[in-house]
């Protein structure tokens, strides 16, 4: 098991956002998390990536506890994420956006940096190569020098995706990647998710409201409602689960 979430709870003040969540994610799985707005999906991501510190429970990645670690440390442990409302470094170039994500991999210390030693220059060259490779893969190479904020919406999503991959993740958390996309773009995202998962040997957790995408891409789906897991299973099972239908369509439908 790659990720084991055990009895995880989190509350903001007196408000319970997540209550005793337990989810197990095997390696190379594409897991979907669905649920109405406010059901705690993004909170779960914030807990896994260390943005929030869980009130109780544990999150273990390959047996190592994540709760209590700083976000950057968790990223170095190969967990990457994207944000629901894209968070790029807007005034920085597309290339810099991706290069920044190599921070945790850079080995040069203050001395090599300040004196720009040969070792430093070699590493810089390598970082550029790695960044360019990703940008080419995501068809962003012609925007290299453009400020990230000037890209069209779809490309900004792609750039955020590339930036997340630049940290060399094993586990990738995607928060509503299809938000604001038209059906054609969702179709492309569908293909992309599958080949990216294969090529980078990723385990992906996907928060998504776009049911079509979730049903096609995910091998397993977890349904959250008011911070509690109400259903779990294959897309087929979840789709026919009466509790899920209640949540989405209201009781009695």
């Amino acid at each position: 098991m790659l990720l084991v979430i055990d009895n995880l709870s989190h509350s903001f003040g007196g408000l319970a956002a997540l209550t005793n969540i337990s989810i197990v994610v095997p390696e190379h799985q594409l897991l979907g998390i669905i649920g109405p707005n406010g059901s705690g999906k993004t909170t779960l991501f914030n807990l896994i990536t260390g943005m929030y510190r869980a009130s109780s429970g544990s999150i273990r990645l390959k047996g190592q506890e994540l709760v209590g670690r700083a976000p950057a440390a968790i990223t170095r442990m190969a967990v990457a994420r994207t944000f629901q409302n894209i968070r790029l470094f807007k005034t920085l170039s597309v290339l810099d956006n991706v290069r920044i994500a190599r921070y945790g991999k850079a080995a040069c210390g203050p001395f090599d940096t300040l004196f720009r030693t040969g070792r430093f220059l070699k590493e810089e060259g390598l970082i550029i190569d790695q960044a360019m490779e990703l940008l080419t893969l995501f068809e962003l190479d012609r925007y290299v020098e453009a400020p990230a904020g000037s890209l069209p919406y779809g490309q900004q999503r792609q750039l955020e995706f590339a930036r997340a991959l630049a940290t060399d993740p094993v586990l990738l958390l995607l928060d509503e990647p299809a938000a604001g996309m038209n059906p054609y773009e969702v179709g492309k995202l569908n293909e992309q998710l599958q080949w990216v998962a294969k090529r980078f040997a990723l385990t992906i957790i996907l928060i998504e409201h776009h049911m079509g995408l979730v049903m096609e891409v995910c091998q397993r789906v977890v349904v959250l409602d008011f911070g509690v897991v109400i259903a779990e299973g294959t897309p087929e099972e979840v789709r026919n689960d009466p509790r899920v239908i209640d949540v989405y369509l209201g009781k009695g439908s």
């Binding site: 990536t49 943005m51 700083a70 976000p71 950057a72 440390a73 990223t75 170095r76 990457a80 994420r81 944000f83 968070r87 790029l88 470094f89 920044i100 994500a101 190599r102 921070y103 945790g104 991999k105 930036r163 997340a164 630049a166 940290t167």
Partner: peptide, 10 residues
Amino acid sequence: IAASAAGVNT
């Protein structure tokens, strides 16, 4: 926040 998510030790 995005910086720390990108692995920058702020």
